[in-house]
Simulated assay, not measured.
Amino acid sequence: MAPIPELFTLFQKGITPALHYPWKVCLWASTASYVLSVITGNVSQVDRIWTFMPTIYSVYFALLPLWPRKAPLPLFPYSPPDLYQPAATNYSPRAVLMASLVFIWMCRLSYNTWRRGLFNLHDEDYRWAVLRQRVPAWFFHVTNLTFIAFAQNIILFLLGLPTHIAVFQQPATLSTSDYILTSLAIIDLLVEFTADNQQFSFQTYKQTGKINHNEWIGARIQWTPADAKRGFVTRGLWAWSRHPNFLCEQSFWIIITLFPLLAPENPSLPPFSFDNISAYWPLTPAVVLCTLFLSSTLFTESISKSKYPQGYGAYQQRVGMFVPLFTPVWGLLLGLQGKKEKVDKMLFGSDPELVPGKKEE
């Protein structure tokens, strides 16, 4: 049974009781991330909790009936006594399903983060080191406080909001849209897992010069010396998208955001107009995350192009940034210019002599 519309009006104003505990966790996580970054001189503290926080928020919302009415310990989850009663006593099958998918997402990302060594307290994302060199020290410190520590934690908090909406919908059973979106989410995670494995397989070969024949299915690629000289992966899924893992990451959270919006229950999005643009607040998690990934990808590519100016520049001309459908279009345009054959040999060929290497320092 759909909840009364007033609940969504209250949520839009940011005063629903179900947000009290997650917001406290977000503030504590933001503060701890900043303090630890100052103490250690390492600003990648948020990166180490990125894999867990959306799951913590989503599971908290999905299991609201489970939590005590009062927290027995600091930061222990609790269900506020003034919470909307059906949400406090009944589990939403949609919210539980969404939290389960987010949990699978967490397992995939945590595994990839672990094997890359990024849970090591001394490891820092190489992009922050580059940014630290490019901007004044005071500006980097402000960026660390406002964006790295606090803004990113707020984004992680936002990723739990679709599950929050689903909790208040209280459907008796799952709808057709739930089953369709679940199938799409699982396919998306499998493709992203494959992209992660291909990247990891390539980086291993690049560092060791040896092919690991025990890689996951989908990542058993016969890398060549030309691939290592090229410096960046251009085979498998990466031949169709420059960032297939980023594409899947954004797609996953778009799917999660759509679960409550495509369901028969409220809230439903009205026809778009600038007069009712505020009614589109449920899209905020997906929009904010995609904006973050776009800006992050542009910065990442600027670093890659500075290392491999000729090779990565050709890669940008030949392969779409995210969407694979653009790749044959770019190939057609290069063909019309008479450049496709040369670019393809540079990017996908196995002759090291035709592959431009890393820029000399």
Rank of each mutant, 00 (worst) to 15 (best):
P65Y: 10
G218Q: 11
L10N: 09
L73E: 14
S175G: 09
G320S: 10
S350D: 15
R134Y: 13
Q317F: 05
Q203M: 13
Q169G: 00
M1S: 12
I155E: 07
P17S: 10
F147K: 01
A2K: 10
K229C: 13
A99W: 02
P171G: 01
G335E: 15
S30F: 05
K206P: 12
Y78Q: 01
S100L: 14
Y111A: 07
A219S: 03
M346L: 13
L10T: 02
H122C: 10
S268N: 09
P136A: 09
L354S: 10
V287K: 04
P260D: 14
L347E: 04
W128G: 03
L294G: 06
L333P: 02
F150R: 00
L75K: 00
E341K: 08
G357W: 01
S241P: 02
Y21N: 05
R220E: 07
G313P: 02
W138C: 05
I211Y: 01
N276M: 12
V343H: 00
T143Q: 14
T234Y: 09
A172L: 15
E265F: 01
P54S: 03
G338Q: 15
P225R: 01
L145P: 00
P80V: 04
Q250K: 06
D188W: 01
I4V: 14
I303Q: 04
V59G: 00
K70H: 13
T51V: 03
I154Y: 06
G313K: 01
L75D: 03
L156Y: 00
F322V: 04
P68E: 15
S278N: 14
T176A: 08
K206A: 13
L109D: 02
F202P: 02
Y57T: 00
